[in-house]
């Protein structure tokens, strides 16, 4: 017998808000990489400007969770969903900040010619985009399998990042005049690597919701 109809509706609202925020964050990251590929400062600026909306979404999710804790005294799975919901919102907000940092790097690179074709960064961006999708789908479908898939994906991102940084250092050593640009590109790689870490945090939150067990996907 369904006895907590309004509470269940509020939990569904929480899920929808997290999905909407996740989609917006994915879009911000995609746009920041698109801006980098075209060295398009205008697109980059739109990512910076869009961050306010993402922050607002985080606050709305926090307010909803706090209201549910204060008024519904959630326990067991309900409690884990709400506490993890707060953490997921925080991770998504940080990913949004990483997208902004990438966009700001693009704005600083305006007018320059890239020292090498972009290969690793778009590859990393593709994987972290998939990771965010997997993390959100794991949350929606309560799927341990999808959540656990994030660990090997994150390993791949870390691997590409290390390789890319080594390569950029070599370029900078051989040609110190491009050191500033290689550093910017390395930072962009670092931001993507951090986005991957936040996605694994979400996966860990999903595993906690489903099983109550703590895990480490990173």
């Amino acid at each position: 017998m369904q006895q907590r109809h309004n509470f269940d509706l509020a939990l569904r609202e929480l899920k929808l808000k997290l999905l909407k925020m996740g989609g917006d964050v994915q879009e911000a990251i995609r746009k920041s990489i698109q801006a980098l590929q075209g060295l398009d400062a205008e697109v980059a600026q739109s990512v910076v400007d869009g961050d306010k909306a993402i922050n607002r979404e985080e606050h709305e999710i926090e307010d909803l969770c706090i209201r549910l804790i204060a008024t519904q005294q959630p326990v067991a799975t309900d409690l884990r969903k709400i506490v993890s919901g707060l953490q997921i919102a925080t991770d998504l907000e940080r990913m949004g900040d990483n997208a902004v940092d990438i966009a700001k790097s693009v704005i600083r690179l305006r007018g320059q010619k890239l020292v090498k074709p972009l290969v690793d960064i778009p590859r990393m961006a593709g994987i972290v985009d998939q990771m965010i999708s997997d993390a959100l789908n794991a949350y929606v479908e309560s799927s341990l399998e999808l959540a656990e898939k994030l660990a090997p994906e994150d390993d791949e991102v870390d691997h590409i990042y290390r390789k890319m940084v080594e390569e950029l250092f070599k370029i900078a050593t051989n040609n110190p005049s491009v050191a500033e640009q290689t550093m910017s590109l390395a930072f962009i790689g670092r931001h993507l690597e951090r986005i991957g870490d936040h996605a694994t945090n979400i996966g860990e939150g999903v595993i906690y919701i489903i099983s109550g067990e703590r895990s480490d996907l990173n």
Binding site: P74, V75, A76, T77, D78, R80
Partner: peptide, 19 residues
């Protein structure tokens, strides 16, 4: 019991889904 009950009936009771 209140964060991660093992039995579904416990979960349903403490979360107010029946009782």
């Amino acid at each position: 019991i209140f964060t991660n009950p093992v039995d579904k009936r416990t979960e349903d009771y403490i979360t107010g889904r029946f009782g």
